Computed example of a mutant assay.
Amino acid sequence: MLKKRIIVCLDVKDGRTTKGVKFQNNVDIGDPVDMAAEYYAQGVDELVFYDIMASARGRGPILDLISRVAERVFIPFCVGGGIGSIEDIRSTILAGAEKISLNSQAVKNPSLITEGARVFGNQCIVLGMDAARDAGAPSGYSVFINGGRVATGLDALEWAKKAVSLGAGEIVLNSIDADGVRNGFEIPLTRMIAESVPVPVIASGGGGTPQHLADVLSDGPCGGMADAALVASMVHSMGYTVGGIKEDLRASGIPVRM
């Protein structure tokens, strides 16, 4: 059985790591470079770095900050926010990222997924998707962009399938409803997407205890079937460490890299 990954997310605003609830009321919680180095030391499998204001402000990635993070960690490092062209992808990779997350820009310009995958490989192009419950959507969930501020009218399941067909090699699936609430991941959404696409799905939004991760990573009949779980609040402010989370997951029968 493939090992499940634990990924730490650093949401960055104005050069500082920040955390909010349902994409609102974000507060400063530290320096992203130092935090990245600490989580690397704790044994995290990957890091995800999101510039949460770049798309809304219409600017590109902060290459200097990306470079400084990349100098401190030696694990896969994914960067998202404000990446709107092949040139942006190239410069971000040259700054030290291994993967590029396309979220708002993927919706606005789907051909960027295809072109990015053609030039840099499918494994490099990650679809970031922010989804919220929507009774009017065929799947029950719809897609939002610009940090959850703008409704797209896209159905979450259909968009996931389309993005993979265009070349996305992985999906970071974030539940807006669960984001920062710490009551558990959105299992029905995660399982629906994971069952429907042939690429890894990373569950994001809602992690508050190791059991929440065990639930979303489980391939059992009530599990989320995610290939990886993304955490933020748990390790930023709730006293958990990456190593401790992995120990609990292993005890629960979830295969993880120790």
Rank of each mutant, 00 (worst) to 15 (best):
E98P: 00
E98M: 04
E98Y: 05
K99G: 01
K99D: 00
I100F: 01
L102N: 02
L102E: 04
L102F: 10
L102W: 08
N103L: 06
N103Y: 10
N103R: 06
N103A: 08
S104Q: 07
S104C: 03
S104H: 09
S104A: 06
Q105Y: 09
Q105L: 04
Q105F: 06
Q105R: 10
A106D: 11
A106V: 06
A106M: 08
A106L: 09
A106Q: 07
A106Y: 09
A106G: 03
V107T: 10
V107K: 01
V107F: 01
K108L: 15
K108E: 15
K108A: 09
N109S: 12
N109E: 13
N109M: 05
N109R: 14
N109Q: 11
P110T: 00
P110K: 00
P110Q: 00
P110V: 00
S111W: 14
L112T: 05
L112D: 02
L112A: 05
L112V: 12
I113M: 09
I113F: 12
I113W: 12
T114P: 03
T114D: 15
T114L: 04
T114N: 15
E115R: 14
E115A: 14
E115M: 12
E115S: 11
G116K: 07
A117L: 09
A117C: 05
A117N: 01
R118G: 03
R118I: 01
V119T: 12
F120L: 05
F120A: 04
G121W: 07
N122E: 14
N122P: 12
N122T: 11
Q123K: 13
Q123H: 14
C124Q: 11
C124M: 12
C124H: 09
C124K: 14
C124A: 09
I125Q: 10
I125S: 09
V126Y: 14
V126T: 07
V126N: 12
V126M: 13
V126I: 14
L127W: 10
L127E: 10
L127T: 07
L127K: 05
G128C: 10
G128N: 05
M129N: 07
M129P: 13
M129E: 15
D130F: 10
D130C: 06
A131C: 15
A131I: 15
A132I: 02
A132D: 04
A132L: 02
A132Y: 07
R133K: 15
R133D: 04
R133N: 06
D134N: 15
D134E: 13
